[in-house]
Simulated scan of single mutants.
Amino acid sequence: MTKDPKTDHTTYINIPEAVGVFDNFETLQAAIYDLMMSGFSRYDISLLGDKEAMKEKLGKSYWQAKDLEDNPDAPRAAFVSEEAIGELEGAVAGGFFFLGSYIAMAAMLTPLSTLAASIAAIAIGGGPAAVVGAVLARRVGQHHKDYYADQIRQGGILLWVRTTDTAKQDLAVKILKGHSGRDVHVHDWSE
């Protein structure tokens, strides 16, 4: 896929941005939580996009984190916490259990069915659906883990933070460095 300069372009805004590279998810997450506790909005925080976004925006080249820190064409993604992934996994698994149980319950709750038969139908209908939900939930969690593992293999997890003034720049740099961020610096624009 080649970029067409007439239709493919990146919009820059004149808001400085701090950038840092992290070697593991735990320190990245701690830095993000500290940023948010210090007044940065989650909308000011972005990470590198996944492989598909990279291929779409930058082609099939092999990119390292150091090559993308200050590349305005690097695709961005929002941070998703482990807690949010856990909630999503629970919702997927629970939703499938509920759906299976509801279908079985609707089929069995007739005037002629007994309570024992209805409970058995709900358990039998909900069980396989819960297994399907658990498998799908595990895939969601694994995709999330693979996303970070792939970035670590490519030189680290990139984190960008929009900063509106010098005080915010200094604070962002201090937080990123305080959580073992590497190559922490500020550039004069953001995407």
Rank of each mutant, 00 (worst) to 15 (best):
M1Q: 13
K3S: 12
K3E: 14
D4Y: 07
P5C: 04
K6W: 06
D8N: 15
H9P: 01
T10V: 13
T10Y: 05
I13G: 06
N14R: 11
V21N: 01
F22C: 01
I32E: 05
Y33N: 07
D34L: 05
G39F: 12
R42K: 14
L47M: 08
G49V: 03
A53Q: 12
G59Q: 09
S61P: 07
Y62L: 14
W63Q: 05
A65F: 06
K66A: 04
L68M: 10
D73K: 12
A74S: 14
P75R: 00
A77G: 00
A77I: 00
A78P: 02
F79L: 02
E82K: 10
E82C: 06
A84D: 11
G86M: 12
E87D: 15
E87F: 14
G90P: 00
A91F: 03
A91L: 03
V92G: 00
V92L: 01
G95R: 03
G95K: 00
F96G: 00
F97P: 01
L99E: 06
G100C: 08
S101I: 07
A106G: 04
A107C: 12
A107V: 10
P111T: 02
T114V: 08
T114P: 06
L115R: 10
S118P: 02
S118A: 15
I119K: 12
A120V: 11
A121R: 03
I122S: 04
G127A: 14
P128E: 10
V131W: 09
V132E: 06
R138D: 05
Q142P: 04
Q142S: 07
H143A: 03
H144M: 01
H144D: 04
D150R: 10
G156M: 02
V161N: 03
T166S: 09
Q169P: 03
Q169M: 11
V173H: 09
V173I: 15
K177L: 12
G178W: 04
G181K: 02
D183V: 08
V184Y: 00
V186S: 05
H187Q: 14
D188Y: 09
E191H: 06
